[in-house]
Design a protein around this nucleic acid. Structure first.
Lengths: 214, 214
DNA sequence: GTCTAAATCGAACGATCGCTCTAGAAGCCC
DNA sequence: GGGCTTCTAGAGCGATCGTTCGATTTAGAC
């Protein structure tokens, strides 16, 4: 359920694998296991043998499907994090009022964050150990998301709802609240996801002073 | 200036080094270089040889002073991150009004974050690759800071200033804004540190709606 | 059945990892 | 000077790293 049904292909050695077959199943299992390790220990903290041994398969298997360790990383990025900007934009279509748009943006962001919690943890753990092309992916996505927030904040300022001239700082503050949730929130804890999302939206919109203060 | 004058000692092989001498200088340079690497590439992403080669010294030198890679990491934690809870508590002494206390807490936290930016980045990059004792340090500090925030938020609730029953979520939201700044703020950029701190305090206290909305 | 390609394995490569050991250089006390 | 401790270097240890390779197994097409 957390996986996209249409899967793109980019590996070096692997060729045409039809989705929904036994071959794809091996692929998926490898991706999921790699995701578990990458999101918990980061890129350098995870070895190819960690992933292979966890599944009881050989390391050559991974190279057969993904070509390299970085290829495996990028494959995970491909179906998850890279889709983030489009998903955020999609949540805005049809909404006109700036404040409504902004709230929809935050809510959509939280929803995607919940779906791709491990994938997003990966990019926030990773620290310039990939080749240039690999780093680019993360930077582009983060820049795109920031751009969306700044654009919406500009609309809020034009509407007279916010006054600060430092929209970039404001955008980072909002992103901080949303992304920090990736660090502390555990789905298996006592807090329901709806409660957490509602509290975060309230905090972003009203800060410490609750929604009844305006 | 970002270093404590009194330095604690815990290495395995090293013994009594008087501060302020030539011996201490080698030590300091090693610590600073290690700090640069750890804060940029994390624990697993940094090798002992990275640090030694950057300084043109031998790896044995590092082991002479710190005993192990983890010892080097913990030594950095010792003079910086571990002092965080005490510094936050110190900023609260003499202040009575809950809201004033909270604002002072946030401001002190931002000040310390600026002083120990690289050190704090280390602990947010690191991901359970240390031995049990090493992990404990980070966890204890983070728990202590969270405890301080929750205690102050309880005072705010008792004073009727906030209403939400989910103080833990609220505390994480505040910490998210503060800690996220470690990820994006560069001191050499165009934004003055005072401006950033003021915007963050305003955001935490009032959210998107500015300070004149209550 | 045969043929072919995808899937999987185990061994091994060179490089790098954290770390140890031995030994010489430098600094201080007398 | 000698005698001691501290500091530093370099070689090398076993382990693990990402990766490659040849060979074997599996599975579908005919």
């Amino acid at each position: 359920m957390t996986l996209d049904s249409s899967r793109s292909r980019r590996a070096a050695a692997a060729v045409a694998v039809r989705p929904g077959e036994a071959g794809a199943s091996s692929r998926e299992v490898l991706l999921q296991t790699a995701l578990d390790f990458f999101s918990k220990r980061g890129f350098t903290g995870t070895s190819i043998r960690d992933i292979a041994n966890a599944l009881g398969v050989s390391v050559s298997n991974i190279y057969h499907y993904f070509g390299s360790k970085e290829g495996l990383w990028l494959e995970i990025m491909e179906y998850s994090v890279k889709t983030l900007p489009d998903r955020l934009e999609g949540a805005l279509t049809g909404i006109e009022a700036p404040l409504e748009r902004f709230e929809a943006l935050v809510r959509a962001h939280l929803t995607v964050s919940t779906s791709y919690q491990r994938e997003l943890r990966m990019i926030f753990l990773q620290q310039d150990r990939l080749t240039d092309g690999g780093d680019r992916v993360n930077q582009d996505v983060q820049r795109a998301v920031l751009g969306i927030y700044i654009r919406e904040l500009e609309a809020l300022r034009a509407a007279g709802i916010i006054r600060t001239p430092h929209l970039k700082i404001l955008a980072f503050n909002v992103l901080g609240v949303i992304n920090w949730q990736l660090r502390w929130y555990r789905g298996d804890g006592p807090l329901p996801v709806d409660t957490v999302h509602r509290e975060i939206v309230d905090f972003i919109l009203h800060g410490l002073h609750g929604p009844d203060s305006n």
